[in-house]
Computed example of a mutant assay.
Amino acid sequence: MDDSNNKPPTFWQMLHSVMAAAFGVQSGKNRARDFTHGKPGHFIVLGILFTVVFALTLYGIVQLVVHLAKV
């Protein structure tokens, strides 16, 4: 049996889980790992940060397109 299943998820694993969950493609294996070994607060903070960065990225892309359309 893999010993890494008993460890809490790393930052990158949590970030991957948050992004996958945001797009609805989270695997059952990772979801089970997150619910078993992850701390909810970490996922909440990462989810909020991801949402803010995602919204700001979309805003920036729209601003760039609008600016280029005026030229």
Rank of each mutant, 00 (worst) to 15 (best):
I48S: 00
S27I: 12
G24T: 13
H42D: 13
T36C: 12
I48C: 03
V62F: 02
S17P: 12
V25E: 05
V71H: 02
W12V: 04
K7F: 14
F11E: 03
T51F: 08
H42I: 07
D3E: 03
L49I: 15
H42F: 10
V65Q: 01
T57G: 05
T10L: 05
K7V: 12
G47M: 01
H16A: 13
A32F: 06
V65Y: 05
A69C: 03
A20I: 05
L49M: 15
R31E: 12
A20K: 05
L64C: 07
G38Q: 07
H42N: 15
V71Y: 05
I61Q: 01
P9H: 09
V52N: 00
T51L: 06
V53D: 00
V45A: 12
F50L: 10
R31A: 14
G60H: 00
K39C: 08
R31V: 06
A21R: 14
T36G: 11
N6H: 07
K70R: 14
S4I: 10
V25P: 00
T10H: 02
K39D: 11
V71P: 01
T10E: 03
G28K: 15
G47E: 03
A69S: 08
V18E: 05
K70M: 14
M1G: 11
F50T: 04
F43D: 08
H67F: 08
K29G: 10
H42M: 09
L68W: 10
D2T: 00
L15Y: 10
G41K: 01
F43H: 15
H37V: 04
I48K: 05
T57I: 07
K70V: 13
D3T: 06
K70T: 14
T57K: 03
D34Y: 05
H67V: 04
A21S: 15
D3S: 06
G60T: 02
D3L: 08
T57Y: 08
D2S: 01
V65P: 01
G24I: 06
L49P: 00
V45D: 01
V62E: 01
V18R: 00
N5F: 13
S4M: 13
G24C: 07
N30S: 12
M19I: 12
V65S: 01
V65L: 09
H37M: 11
F23I: 12
A32C: 02
A55R: 10
F23W: 13
F11S: 07
P40V: 13
D34E: 15
T57S: 10
H42K: 12
V45S: 06
Q63N: 10
L56Y: 03
N5E: 13
L68K: 07
G24K: 09
T57V: 07
Q63W: 04
R31M: 15
N6S: 09
A20E: 11
T10A: 06
L56G: 02
G41S: 04
Q63T: 06
T36F: 04
V65H: 04
T51K: 03
V52I: 14
V18D: 03
F11G: 08
G41D: 02
G41V: 06
L15V: 14
M19Q: 11
K29Y: 15
F11I: 12
V25F: 06
F11D: 06
L58D: 04
H42W: 15
F11V: 13
V65E: 00
T51R: 02
P40S: 06
A22K: 14
